[in-house]
């Protein structure tokens, strides 16, 4: 008996896996009921959906990039204090003194840019294959919400290094909000926490960046994937024979 199989059949192993190693299709279909990660997927999908041409794997690429950002972001949080007094120096410390600090910061920065690209490209790909059509309309709407959350995450993260690039980009970005009729000035004040970009702004953006927005994104993303799974076996009207996807 293989070791993996022995572990699966032990008392603790069977309580964890709840099923023998899955070899047959039937076992594997059952896995979608008993495995948490697997239950995000449908049991079967249409053949077209596993081709590169159909999705270019942009959705899964966005999720993977979000994963990279979460992991590297947590590492960066250990070395960063969101205050104008320390923020810039902390970034310099991360780059010069922390082991792999520069590499982690690079990963975080480039993955963030790539995630914006991947999410936007995913949106375009879904449009061109018409995957927003009934009954999937609402999942498209959820996707647009995810795009906005991605942009907000990227923008709030942009201020955190507290360098000239960050400071003035956020000054301009928040000044735009002030032009919204009626509530504009209030929205700008709420974002800045004061008359100009300052310590209150940095703290607000930090809290949004590391807590509020990621949690919101994970929540909305869960619904997005859940609806994708529910709809993954649909054949839409003119799908038959259509080679373009």
């Amino acid at each position: 008996m293989k070791t993996s199989e022995r572990i699966r059949k032990s008392t603790i192993g069977s309580s964890f896996f709840r099923s023998p190693d899955r070899v047959t299709e039937r076992d594997r279909a059952a896995g979608h009921w008993s495995n948490f990660l697997l239950h995000l997927y449908p049991v079967r999908v249409r053949k077209v959906e596993i081709t590169f041409k159909y999705t270019a794997f942009l959705g899964v690429a966005s999720v993977v990039l979000f994963g990279i950002l979460t992991v590297t972001g947590i590492f960066l949080m250990f070395f960063y204090v969101p205050s104008p007094t320390y923020a810039y120096g902390d970034i310099q410390t991360i780059q010069n003194e922390v082991a792999f600090g520069q590499f982690l910061r690079n990963m975080h920065r480039w993955a963030a840019h790539l995630m914006v690209l991947a999410v936007a490209a995913h949106l375009a790909r879904v449009f061109y294959r018409g995957a927003y059509k009934p009954p999937k309309e609402f999942n498209w709407v959820i996707g647009v919400v995810l795009l906005v959350l991605t942009l907000l995450l990227s923008f709030t993260g942009y201020l955190l290094p507290w360098d000239q690039l960050a400071y003035w980009a956020v000054t301009v970005g928040t000044a735009m909000a002030a032009y919204v009729p009626i509530v504009g000035d209030l929205v700008q004040e709420l974002m800045l926490g004061g008359p100009t970009v300052g310590s209150a702004t940095l703290l607000r953006f930090y809290v949004l960046h590391v807590a509020v927005l990621p949690v919101a994104l994970v929540g909305v993303l869960t619904v997005h994937i859940w609806r994708w799974r529910k709809d993954s076996m649909l054949t839409m009207d003119s799908d038959q024979g259509a080679t373009d996807a």
Partner: peptide
């Protein structure tokens, strides 16, 4: 995706301008 990000991060440093 992971390999692409790692490669970019190895060869290009994230920008950091002067302090705000």
């Amino acid at each position: 995706v992971i390999v692409i990000v790692v490669l970019i991060a190895m060869f290009f440093d994230a920008p950091l301008r002067e302090i705000a």
